[in-house]
Design a protein around this nucleic acid. Structure first.
Lengths: 253, 253
DNA sequence: ATGCAAATCTGATCCAGATCAACAGTTGCC
DNA sequence: GGCAACTGTTGATCTGGATCAGATTTGCAT
């Protein structure tokens, strides 16, 4: 009896159909019984601690992962020692799609804070997508979204100023937190100034100065990792003034 | 009789199973009869002329396209008038995957020279991928490859010098031309200095100067659009000296 | 608490590449 | 054939952000 109770609680906590992220994730648009079939292949492992790796460059690819809570950083290590941050993955976002092509991961993924993920073994997912058309379509959509992100990124890294980059980054976080049900104006950064700089192609000193500058301009309130956006409009204006291609930099599904 | 002959010639020219690009494209790894099923949904339209659009930003998404010959440039138009080049697509490469997510293309695609493409209606492709597991897997691989390109691009645009960027670009072209069966050391650029600059996040003047500089260093022989790589090793060295993350910038399937 | 290492902030200097400008081929069009 | 519009090259100057250097703050372990 107590045994049963524990199991059902466990299920309640994690089943796809009860998951608050379902609308951002693979089950989107699926019928109830299809969701259960997906649910059956999803593995819920214990949460990762800060610094734990989900996978590393060169690891053989077996699963894709959906962030349930926390943050995953993906990055590559250059031979000269420096790291290049490739992405920050918030709840509802998928990690690991890079490994499908070659069967090996081409970047590393580590937790920036305590992070829970759903692991989806890819070969079993492929069996399922072959029989559940809606799921196949959703996979194509998810992957297409990743490909679209590239467009925004090229504008951001190719043409934009440091100010525009940080503004775009903060707005992207804001929109994504909001879609997860958190405040769009007040949140904690789980990544360091150095990591933000690496992602945006800026020196960490520049990131630090810009936070100070945005605070002086009364656009933000910054207390180390804690950010409060005071003037969302001003941030938007920083983007649209010079270019408006950044819309799709990163937005929820 | 003559009728039959014309048709069979036509087929010979275009059928997937006789296409020299099959190993770079969707049919990779498929059985003969599956290739024929794919072949049946592929549309071969008349070639595009220089400047013709395959699709434009905002167009509703219906098909993906595979370049058979020529070059397609994808780009976005920023409100301030300037364009950002997102990619150059050579024979064997797929264009249009960006549209799956939203059902609308988020960039424009135009021919830089006379260009032939195979059009694959996406809804029909999805029906086929649901019944041909190998094709579904190949689609996932193709899309994963596009996603992986992002990693190389972030290193290139975020950290690298102008010299490294152009070297990486030329090597990428070289590898891709080679995989298509052309010379890896001598080719014509179908894009302008301005377009290369936009793609690499550089001013066109910088691109021009670098070509001159590479020529002075005896690494290249440059005559307007015609490029001859004299010292492939030197180009590689320009990359690996400072970082080695650029391997996967863009390589054949 | 205390100390040590890492992260952040801030100021000073420097430089790669942007921008501005002038010119020379090249292409296309009437 | 000649004018106009691109496209590419080259030189001169300027500047945003990198780099270097130091002071502070924070986090963590002892």
């Amino acid at each position: 009896m107590p045994q049963t109770k524990v199991v059902s609680l466990e299920k309640l906590k994690t089943a796809c159909k009860n998951c608050g992220l379902a609308k951002l994730c693979l089950p989107l648009g699926l019928e109830n019984n299809d969701i259960e079939r997906l649910d059956a292949i999803v593995q819920r492992n214990r949460p990762l601690h800060r610094g734990n790796h989900l996978f590393q460059t060169g690891n053989s690819f077996g699963s894709i992962y959906v962030v349930k809570s926390g943050t995953i950083k993906t990055y590559t290590q250059c031979p000269n020692g420096t790291e290049q941050v490739v992405g920050f993955h918030l709840p509802g976002e998928v990690v690991g799609l890079d490994g499908i092509e070659t069967g090996q991961h081409i970047c590393s993924a580590k937790a920036l804070e305590t992070t829970a993920v759903c692991e989806v073994p890819f070969s079993r997912l492929e069996e399922l997508t072959a029989t559940v058309p809606g799921l196949q379509h959703q996979m194509f959509r998810l992957m297409s979204k990743e490909i679209s992100k590239e467009t925004g990124l090229m504008v951001l890294l190719g043409k934009s100023t440091a100010e525009e980059r940080l503004a775009a980054f903060l707005l992207s976080l804001s929109v994504r937190f909001h879609s997860y049900g958190f405040s769009s104006t007040e949140f904690n950064l789980s990544m360091s100034r150095r990591e933000i700089g690496s992602y945006l192609g800026l020196a960490l000193e520049t990131v630090s100065r810009l936070f100070t500058h945005f605070q002086e301009e009364k656009i933000l309130e910054v207390d180390r990792k804690h950010i409060k956006i005071l003037e969302m409009e001003q941030l938007f204006k920083l983007l649209s003034d010079q270019n408006g291609c950044l819309d799709r930099l990163q937005h929820p599904n």
